[in-house]
Design a protein around this nucleic acid. Structure first.
Lengths: 290, 290
DNA sequence: GCAAATACACGCGTTTTTGCACGAAGGTCG
DNA sequence: CGACCTTCGTGCAAAAACGCGTGTATTTGC
């Protein structure tokens, strides 16, 4: 008569992943165990939940109903874990931060060092990705993001105003300076596949030479002298082998924010990290604008 | 990192019951297991959840937070089980009905017999109680209730209009008839502790002799000739050793309803039971009014 | 048309979880 | 003040759950 809640979670995972192995991996258990739990919950509820086939378990209508309620339970679990994280007074344990790779590698790395020295009991976990992680699902405790506002229902603090500008390898920079009317090759980001707006009329001839989907590769190409890139000012300045070129005058760009879920935001560990982070940003804010 | 949902339920039960043994009984597990699970979830979450003392486990603030979220999960579980019950097309398995004891013993018993003969695959479970069971928590699938409306958010169908009247043992009835002006002793229900209103002026002298908290005992007392009772008409007529006395003319009384949760209501088993029930009530509705 | 890959089913040995019996501590009542 | 009741903690054996290896069916790719 009594149904195990963990079995409901197993159903949810199987509905999501369609295969025993996939669900097992998501739960960090063997797929055989998934199969056993499914059989158990099926007999317990008195409903067939999946049609077994050679290419996986196909959920029945009943399974979808189970899954949707298990999803509510999962939401409650995340709510709970965030709340507990928020009231945790310890300055020890794990703290997960996410930020764009390039922001970490070319600017934030010293913050990590400082924080680790100041709070050696806290194990810092860094997720360096351009993906927008789901802070509601506790994929990270705090996120450092480049955007116009915190977004969603998140709490946020603006760390830095920033501008972007045009950069190129020194050789190319010299060539542009010596012949402003010559054709200027641009390396642009896939998402905005045109020559930037607002180019100084001194340089009338511009074209897109390459479109990239990855900023790291773009910087490499620019370093190799393949063209001019528009990047945030801190980044162009921080990358060796690039110099600013006056083709594109500095323009306002999305700001740098630290954001977090309201539940997690007040936690001691998050507060401690923000303190170190804010101090560091204040100290180096000149890097971000002209 | 991963927290077992069943452990959260265990925390919920311990917060509710305060003692390991109580929580264990509620979960049908040994109390040592409760203690072990609590320890496990405490280390898993990194929060102390209970203060151990000789008279039980006292929840901390963190435990209350866990419990409140586990309560949401429990609600989801009940939602789920009702939904599944509602879409269950089987005419087999268990069906739980609740009704007031006296309604069952003096009127509904034949329905149970008929239903069991018509649907032998369905195991009928009867909760004969005057308590209002929580259909949301699936304490019963259907309830037969004496009330003015279905109540809550429940679906309902009015089965019978009924009236009540005054009954007494034959000896007492004869005495009342022979001497209408003599003092008439009443046996009344605790909840309404006065002589009923609307008594025929032919019988001017009335007093409360006993107040009871239990209807079965009241009937016994009336059978023994201790006084006059006001009861639903079907009941006075069905009980051996009582006859109607004209002291209190028949009055409208709360009706008989069958009610159920909207999720469970459309289930095949519930539908089948209602069919038998309604037919039986139609056939015998004359018993309930004058 | 055949081989590789993928996915499930089943049986066996191991690990984990659970229940039970016993003992200690604190509170209650005569 | 002492017997009794309730409650929790611990050690041990039984039971349940689990992971692994093997076998089979079906799909995919060449």
């Amino acid at each position: 008569m009594n149904i195990a809640w963990d079995d409901l979670r197993t159903v949810l995972m199987l509905v999501r992943h369609q295969t025993l192995a996939g669900a097992g991996a998501a739960l960090s258990i063997n797929y055989t165990t998934v199969a056993r739990r499914i059989r158990r919950v099926e007999t317990g509820l008195g409903h067939l939940l999946f049609e077994r086939s050679a290419d996986g378990y196909r959920p029945t209508e009943a399974a979808r109903i189970v899954a949707s309620h298990a999803e509510n339970m999962e939401t409650s679990e995340f709510d709970l874990r965030r709340k507990l994280q928020g009231i945790n007074p310890e300055l020890s344990g794990c703290l997960t931060i996410t930020a764009p790779q390039l922001l970490i590698s070319h600017f934030l790395a010293p913050v990590l060092d400082q924080f680790d020295r100041a709070f050696p009991q806290i194990e810092l976990r860094i997720l360096a990705t351009n993906d927008i992680l789901d802070l509601t699902r506790l994929e990270a405790d705090l996120a450092i993001r480049i955007s116009r506002n915190p977004g969603d229902m998140l709490k946020g603090l603006r760390l830095l105003k920033q501008e972007n500008a045009s950069f190129a390898a020194p050789g190319m920079a010299a060539q542009i300076q010596s012949d402003p009317k010559a054709m200027i090759d641009w390396i642009v980001y896939d998402a905005i596949p045109n020559v930037p707006q607002g180019i100084d009329p001194t340089y009338p001839n511009n074209r897109v030479r390459f479109r990239f989907d990855d900023m790291v590769a773009m910087l490499g190409a620019a370093q190799a002298g393949l063209g001019v890139v528009r990047v945030p000012m801190f980044l162009g300045r921080a990358v060796a082998g690039l110099v600013e070129v006056p083709v594109l005058p500095p323009q306002p760009y999305s700001d740098v924010w630290v954001v977090g879920h309201p539940d997690v935001w007040p936690s001691e560990k998050a507060r401690a990290f923000r303190e170190v982070l804010i101090a560091y940003c204040k100290q180096h804010r000149a890097n971000f604008t002209s």
